[in-house]
């Protein structure tokens, strides 16, 4: 469905991505993990058109989207969330989702239709009762959920989530995990995550990045079989 081949990216002397190839299959959840500075977010920025790769191609449903600007990529049905929050603090949760809903070229009741769609989105992220609370008054966990809601507003077919659990406690993380597991049924998701345990529980396929390269990939079971993973905190936590 979505395929990136031989992506290269440098910033001055720093090589951020080198020969990265990835593909995301329809209806599956793909995880990207790696230590700090491995190039995960840069990878996202390339895939969603924020940066142009120095070399390499990106294809979505057979179409080359390498040189397209972010808005054109968004219109094709690709949406993303950010590691740092991008909400309008003084607007209500509902307004935040409404703003993100793409313009509907219809007359008459289109406003109501948009409104209804946004309420559905809020409901799906578990914020139905908090539609009129201002974004800045929401709890941190709710704000994270709203972030995902904003990304969902455009009804994407492919959703990129950049560390949706950054800074969350165990309970809030579990809530986001449930939410993503629910979303996974209807859309293709690509997820950047630090927390291996979280990712191993959700993903169908995982890419491990380091030094701007994909150093390992496989199903969670394959990656977990690694003796050093077994030895780590993660191995103990899983067993």
């Amino acid at each position: 469905m979505f395929e990136a081949t031989h992506l290269h990216k440098r910033f001055g002397y720093h090589v951020v991505l080198e020969d990265v190839s990835m593909s995301f299959a329809q209806g599956r959840l793909t995880g990207i993990m790696g230590p700090n500075g491995a190039g995960k977010t840069t990878c996202f920025n390339l895939l969603t058109g924020r940066y142009r790769p120095d070399r390499g191609r990106i294809r979505f449903e057979g179409r080359d989207i390498t040189a397209l600007p972010p808005r054109a990529i968004a219109r094709l049905g690709i949406s993303r969330s950010f590691q740092v929050m991008n909400l309008f603090d003084d607007y209500s949760a509902l307004d935040n989702v409404l703003i993100a809903t793409p313009e509907v070229r219809e007359r008459g009741f289109s406003v109501w239709r948009r409104f209804g769609g946004s309420t559905d989105v809020l409901e799906s992220v578990g914020l139905a009762g908090k539609a009129h609370v201002r974004a800045k008054d929401l709890s941190y966990g709710d704000r994270r959920a709203l972030e995902i809601g904003v990304a969902l507003a455009a009804r994407p077919r492919l959703l990129f989530l950049d560390e949706p659990t950054a800074g969350l406690g165990t309970e809030a993380t579990a809530r986001i995990a449930r939410l993503i597991a629910e979303l996974k049924r209807s859309i293709t998701i690509v997820l950047i995550e630090h927390d291996m345990k979280f990712l191993f529980g959700l993903a169908d396929h995982i890419y491990v990045m380091h030094w701007g390269q994909v150093i390992a990939q496989g199903s969670p079971a394959e990656l977990r079989a690694n003796p050093w993973v077994q030895r780590s905190n993660l191995g103990h936590a899983v067993n």
Binding site: Q213, A216, N226, P227, W228, V229, S232, N233
Partner: peptide
Amino acid sequence: NTQDGYIGFMLDF
């Protein structure tokens, strides 16, 4: 570091 399991992936790399 042994906390995360990245060593194994690096060695395989």
